[in-house]
Nucleic acid binder design. Structure first.
Length: 278
DNA sequence: CGCCAGGCTTCTA
DNA sequence: TAGAAGCATGGC
């Protein structure tokens, strides 16, 4: 992989295992969308980003190398060798098929608060509506920036009431959003420390928040704190596990179970397994 | 219209 | 302590 700064853009060549559609629309992040010109546009870390993939070249528009190395290189997980992880799936036919099918997925390193809040909203919900609620959350309480609105800080939401969150139409989740925001804003829950914390302890800590169970905690750790050993169990994964891995994943998959989880989730939802219903 | 959604909390036996 | 009911809202 080579990175160059060309005309104010970042241009990357020789990048393997990175498809924009798979990575940005596989249900791990909710603020990315395709443009009609083939580009993808999203907002994260308080700024709008536009991306384009042509053949072997990835372009990140209007970005300095300093910003790329400081945020986006890690955000897109570009320094991880996904080829070796996919190769480690070869010993099991289902894992191999799923990994091949989702070989362009990378696990994003989202801001922990955005991941936590987004996956609180995701519970018992469908992806189009999750996106709508998050969009209204940002429009109502985020900062206006070029191209849209930032994701609102926990400290901003912590001072609000359930009534004030009504425009989101998030239903019973509003009280959970506020409980999370207050615990984070007060420092009771240290999101910045999640990455360095041990997985088990961090998971238990997050589950103190009302409306945060094992699934939401695992999504927060996987997508917002780079804990790739976290293994979120949603209805799709529960079905795959009970039908195909009643004894759990093969041992060689456990260190990066979260990445395998995304392959299985993406594969199962595509209907490639047995039908298309959980 | 009815079923269900990247679950969790609360109630019940 | 396991299992079921209830939850807000709207996508399909």
């Amino acid at each position: 992989m080579t990175v160059n700064s060309v005309n104010g853009n970042i241009v990357i060549e020789g990048l393997k295992n990175f498809e924009l559609a798979q990575t940005l629309d596989c249900g791990q992040a909710f603020r990315w969308s395709p443009e009609n010109d083939g580009c993808w546009r999203g907002i994260a870390y308080g700024r709008e980003v536009r991306l384009q993939r042509q053949d072997d070249t990835l372009t990140l528009f209007d970005m300095t190398e300093e910003e790329f190395n400081g945020i986006w290189r890690g955000y897109f997980d570009l320094d991880r060798d996904y080829g070796s992880i996919i190769a480690a799936c070869e010993g099991n036919e289902l894992l191999k098929n799923a990994a091949d099918y989702g070989s362009g997925i990378r696990i994003l390193a989202q801001e922990p608060w955005e991941a936590l809040c987004s996956f609180i909203i995701s519970q018992n919900n469908n992806i189009p509506r999750i996106k709508g609620i998050i969009e209204r959350l940002c429009e109502n309480f985020g900062e206006p920036i070029k191209g849209g609105y930032s994701f609102p800080d926990a400290s901003v939401l912590a001072g609000l009431t359930v009534e004030e969150l009504a425009p989101l139409r998030s239903g019973f989740r509003a009280k959970y959003i506020l409980d999370a925001a207050r615990r984070v804003a007060s420092g009771e829950i240290d999101l910045k420390g999640l990455k360095a914390s041990q997985y088990d302890a961090a998971r238990e800590r997050l589950m103190v928040i009302k409306g945060v169970g094992g699934k939401v905690a695992d999504c927060t750790l996987l997508f917002g704190a780079s804990h790739i050993e976290a293994f979120p169990r949603d209805v799709w994964i529960k079905r795959v596990m009970s039908e195909h891995f009643p004894e759990g994943l093969p041992a060689e998959a456990l260190p990066y179970a979260g990445i395998i989880q995304q392959y299985l989730f993406f594969y199962a939802r595509s209907g490639a397994l047995t039908g298309n219903t959980p």
